[in-house]
Design a binder for these strands. Structure first.
Lengths: 253, 253
DNA sequence: CTTGACCTTGACGTAACGTCAACCTCTACC
DNA sequence: GGTAGAGGTTGACGTTACGTCAAGGTCAAG
């Protein structure tokens, strides 16, 4: 019924340091303190300690534990809130795991270095110099921040979307269809939507790309074969440009 | 090609404070420092920063990142190690989530208070006073530490095991079989194994309970109806005791 | 010369204790 | 009574990766 600090620590499966800490922060005071300064604990303290440790094992923080112990009927609410946080952490970890796995794979395949991987697959921030010159430094910073804010899955999904779009452009060009025709215009529409999915760029977001940005980009695909390569080389890039230009004239103010 | 600290921070989507920190710990030095003390960064620094932030997003610690950047071929190894750690964290979270859910449920059902829940379902630590008196204080401390070391799932599984054992004892008694007969002796064997699964108790672990502990426990079931209740009351407890006693005499030295 | 924006170097705070360090207390034994 | 050993006490620093003041210098613009 009267334990020393070490005794109660062993009883509860923790350490004396922890008990001193709980005393310091007012979470668990000893039953009494001897004239020599020694802490002494009783059965009530043991029960309280057990509860503290139980809640701690559930992952609650000490302030939250203090809250719950103060009024036990708050426990369900506190635990539900905690549960949400745990689930979010779960998700975050899941994404990180997928992300790390993907990175390891690409490193093992020797496919690309990391720095390049970052800029991979999206043409308007791949070459920041150009982007900055044409649309200002902020545009690059914003789109870069956007890119880095995505989870690995989102990035992968986004890149896949671009790859499909790019493949469809090449396919359409190879089939020799009319850049101003319905099919090519549908592709231009997809291209427009794709750009709209990049918040922070000139015209990214709900309104979509500005006419200027859209036309400028189209020209850049032709002018710079680093961009053009994504659309099947110079001729493919011209095809894309023509379709985009026609689209802009018909649909963008 | 020459950015101020804020400029490069925006370019990379981080803060100037972070850059100062990276400078402090030697992770990323500025390209040059002006006579006024201002930090200036170049393109190389930007690339390095991008890599740092990429790895950081994967969850690596800054020392690990420094390691990887020093020799990039170490990246796969570092990432694989990191992946393991991530998976372990995942598991831990999964268990915590299950644990919290279970606790919420039991609180909602108003079934039991938390402190009681801890001692619930296992008879030899339910009443620590008795345990301490009979087998010493250490026994209680060890078995308590053991109990608290289990995950919620393990606890649940263990309790379920006890519940089945207990139910089978009651069932056997109600069917009026012979405590010294094969069937009851099989139950006693299960009881023995169950006790063996508790490391740290007198006889817990590979060797199994000592004869003394086993007999003492059997008597306690009869003597204390708080224990006996688990086995169908006084008569049930006597039945269990008789079976256990017979078992001990035949099998325990 | 005065703003205002931007830069610098400290230094504290964060979560929950682990880990010394320096020093006191109690019990046991010679 | 002295001493060793186990156990107690209060600081105070270390841990992770910065956020957040605080105090003060620098620079371009008006």
């Amino acid at each position: 019924m009267d334990w020393s600090i070490q005794e109660i620590a062993k009883l509860a499966g923790t350490t004396s340091r922890t008990l001193r800490h709980y005393d310091d922060i007012g979470l668990l005071a000893p039953a009494r303190i001897g004239s020599n300064g020694y802490r002494h604990y009783d059965a009530d303290a043991l029960v309280r300690l057990q509860r503290i440790l139980l809640l701690r094992d559930l992952g609650l923080g000490l302030p939250a534990i203090a809250d719950v112990l103060e009024r036990e009927d708050r426990a369900p609410h506190a635990l539900r809130g905690h549960l949400e946080w745990l689930r979010r952490e779960q998700e975050r970890l899941t994404r990180q795991i997928a992300s790390v796995e993907q990175t390891i794979e690409s490193l093992e395949g020797g496919e690309r270095l990391m720095a390049e991987q970052m800029f991979d697959g999206f043409d308007h921030t791949e070459y920041k110099e150009e982007v900055e010159q044409r649309w200002g430094r902020d545009a690059y910073a914003r789109s870069d921040a956007w890119w880095r804010s995505m989870s690995a899955e989102e990035k992968a999904a986004w890149q896949e979307r671009l790859a499909r779009l790019s493949g469809d452009w090449i396919d359409a060009h190879e089939r020799g269809i009319d850049p101003a025709g319905d099919e090519a215009q549908a592709l231009a529409q997809r291209h427009f939507e794709w750009l709209r999915s990049i918040p922070g760029t000139p015209g990214g977001g709900a309104n979509g790309p500005t006419r200027e940005y859209f036309l400028g980009l189209a020209e850049m695909y032709v002018a710079d074969d680093r961009f053009g390569a994504n659309y099947g080389g110079a001729e493919g890039a011209r095809f894309v440009r023509d379709a985009m230009t026609a689209y802009a004239e018909r649909n963008l103010a």
